[in-house]
C-alpha cells in the first residue's frame, strides 16, 4: 500500500497495464512528453516509448477511429480525450463504430478500447472544460461506462477497463485528481466486477446514490445529516452502464427513500433511469418519491456561476429533507 493522488493512481494503473500486456497502447493529445494536461500519463512515454504512448494529431474522431483499426488488429488502445467537452468530434466513431462493431460482426471483432475522459466541473475552467456527458454514452448500447471516485478505485478500475474485451468509457473526476488515498497496486484486474456499486457509508433512512466527483460531497452530506439525526446510506455507483441495481435495490428496501445526485443536467439523465427502475423494483417499499439533485438543464455556465449549477452538500441535504418529509426549500412552494 502507498499513499497517492487519484491522478497518480490512474498513472500507476496505466503503467501496470502497459507492463502486463504488450498490446496496450496509449493514444491522445499531449500525453507524451507533457504527460497529459493533468499529468495522468506522466513519464509513461519515456519508459514505454513513443510507439506505445502516442501523441496524436489534434483530432478526436481520428484518435477513436484509428483506435478501432488497432483493435481490429488485436491491440488494446487506451485513448485520452483531453477534456469532457472535446469528446463530441469523436462521438460518431464511439457511437457508430466502437459501440456497435462487436454486435455488427456477431462477436467476431472485439473492441477492447478504453476511452479516458477527465469530466465534471468545480475547477473554475472556461467553457467546454467542465461537462458531464456520461448520459450520451450510457444511452448507447454496447458501451460500458464507469466512473471512479477515489484513488484505489481509480487504479483498479482503469486496469479492469483496459483488461475488458468490451469498450469502456472511463470518466475521471478531474476536480478530485489531487485527492490522496491509500492504493494497493498488487491487485489483479479481476479483483472487482466491472459492474459493482459500493456502499461507502451505511445508513437506514435515506439512500443517496452518487458517482465520480460527487461521492465525496455525498459522504460529507451523510455526516451532516447524521448531526440532524438522519441516517444516510451513500452508494458509489462506479459502473454507470450497466448499473448495479441489485445493490441500490437492497439499500432502498431498507431505507425506503432514494436521492440521486449527479453533476450532469437532469432531463433524460442517469437519475431519471435510476428513479424509474428503482420505483418499479421497490414501489411498495418507498416512503417518498425519489429525488434528484443535479446540474440545471442549462448549458454549463461560466466559472463564476458554477457553484450554483453544481450539486453541493446543502442541496443534497435539502433533498434528504424532502424525502424525509421535513421542512425544505420547497415546503411553501406554490409553483407549477
Amino acid at each position: 500500500m502507498s499513499t497517492m493522488t487519484l491522478s497518480r493512481a490512474i498513472n500507476s494503473g496505466l503503467r501496470k497495464a502497459l507492463e502486463d500486456d504488450p498490446k496496450v497502447v496509449l493514444m491522445g493529445e499531449d500525453i507524451g512528453k507533457l504527460g497529459g494536461v493533468f499529468r495522468v500519463t506522466d513519464g509513461l512515454q519515456k519508459d514505454f516509448g513513443a510507439h506505445r504512448v502516442m501523441d496524436t494529431p489534434l483530432a478526436e474522431a481520428g484518435i477513436i477511429g484509428t483506435a478501432v483499426g488497432l483493435a481490429y488488429r488485436g491491440y488494446r488502445p487506451v485513448c485520452e480525450i483531453q477534456f469532457d467537452g472535446f469528446i463530441y468530434p469523436g462521438f460518431d466513431q464511439i457511437v457508430t463504430q466502437v459501440a456497435k462493431l462487436h454486435y455488427r460482426t456477431g462477436g467476431a471483432v472485439k473492441m477492447p478500447i478504453t476511452i479516458r475522459v477527465p469530466f465534471g466541473g468545480g475547477i473554475g475552467a472556461v467553457e467546454h472544460h467542465s461537462e458531464s456527458p456520461e448520459a450520451y454514452f450510457t444511452h448507447t448500447s454496447g458501451l460500458r461506462v464507469v466512473s471512479c471516485s477515489n484513488p484505489q478505485d481509480a487504479h483498479t478500475m482503469v486496469r479492469q477497463a483496459i483488461a475488458s474485451d468490451d469498450p469502456v468509457l472511463f470518466f475521471e473526476p478531474k476536480r478530485r485528481y489531487w485527492t490522496k488515498g491509500e492504493v494497493n497496486e498488487e491487485i489483479t484486474a479481476d479483483t472487482l466486477s466491472l459492474e459493482s456499486a459500493a456502499v461507502v457509508n451505511s445508513g437506514n433512512d435515506v439512500t443517496l446514490v452518487s458517482f465520480g466527483p460527487l461521492v465525496a460531497t455525498a459522504r460529507d452530506a451523510a455526516i451532516a445529516a447524521s448531526d440532524e439525526g438522519v441516517s444516510v446510506e451513500v452508494i458509489d455507483l462506479r459502473s454507470l452502464s450497466p448499473i448495479d441495481f441489485a445493490t441500490i435495490e437492497a439499500s432502498v428496501r431498507k431505507t425506503g427513500r432514494l436521492v440521486i445526485t449527479h453533476e450532469a443536467q437532469q432531463f433524460g439523465g442517469l437519475g431519471a433511469e435510476i428513479a424509474a427502475s428503482i420505483t418499479q423494483r421497490c414501489f411498495y417499499y418507498l416512503e417518498a418519491a425519489p429525488e434528484r439533485v443535479t446540474g440545471f438543464d442549462t448549458p454549463y455556465p461560466a466559472a463564476k456561476l458554477e457553484d450554483h449549477f453544481l450539486p453541493n452538500l446543502d442541496r443534497m441535504l435539502d433533498a434528504v429533507d424532502r424525502v424525509m418529509g421535513k421542512d425544505n426549500s420547497l415546503s411553501n412552494w406554490k409553483g407549477q
Binding site: T66, V68, Q97
Partner: peptide, 30 residues
Amino acid sequence: AGWNPYDINMAPSQVIIGAQTLHATGYALG
C-alpha cells in the same frame, strides 16, 4: 455483417461514409 472479417481479412460493409478510412489507418499502424 455478411462475413467474419478475419475469415477473408475484410471488414464488413461500412454504411457511415468514410468512417472506414480511419479504421484502415489504425489497422496499418498495428
